[in-house]
């Protein structure tokens, strides 16, 4: 059943462990999203990411029309540390069976 490496997920953090050196998606509080290569992590979900694209989504209400204006701001950061307490969701690249 198992492949070459131990690809079993026994506890949730195994999912993160299997994503080391892979590009992952991280959803953070206050409508921030990151995509980058996972270099390191710990049990708090503190993470070191490289070649990161950050997307920030803001919703403003137009003063006159009351329409919602959704804006996304993108930027790239070479190397960063993510504090675990801001993490909502982490999605690894698809594991091929």
């Amino acid at each position: 059943m198992s492949g070459e490496e131990d690809a079993t997920v026994r506890e949730p953090l195994d999912l993160i462990r299997l994503s080391l050196d892979e590009r992952i998606y991280v959803k953070l509080r206050s409508d921030r999203e990151l995509r980058g290569k996972l270099h390191a992590f710990d049990q708090h979900l503190n993470m070191i990411l490289g070649d990161v694209e950050e997307v920030i989504t803001t919703v403003e209400i137009d003063d006159e029309t009351y329409e919602e204006i959704v804006r996304t701001t993108k930027r790239t950061i070479q190397f960063l540390f993510v504090r675990g307490d801001g993490v909502i969701l982490v999605s690894p690249p698809l594991r091929t069976a």
């Binding site: 949730p12 909502i88 999605s91």
Partner: peptide, 11 residues
């Protein structure tokens, strides 16, 4: 949609 997802428990 996510193939795999990890959700941090505090949320």
């Amino acid at each position: 949609k996510y193939g795999d997802a990890f959700i941090r428990g505090n949320n």
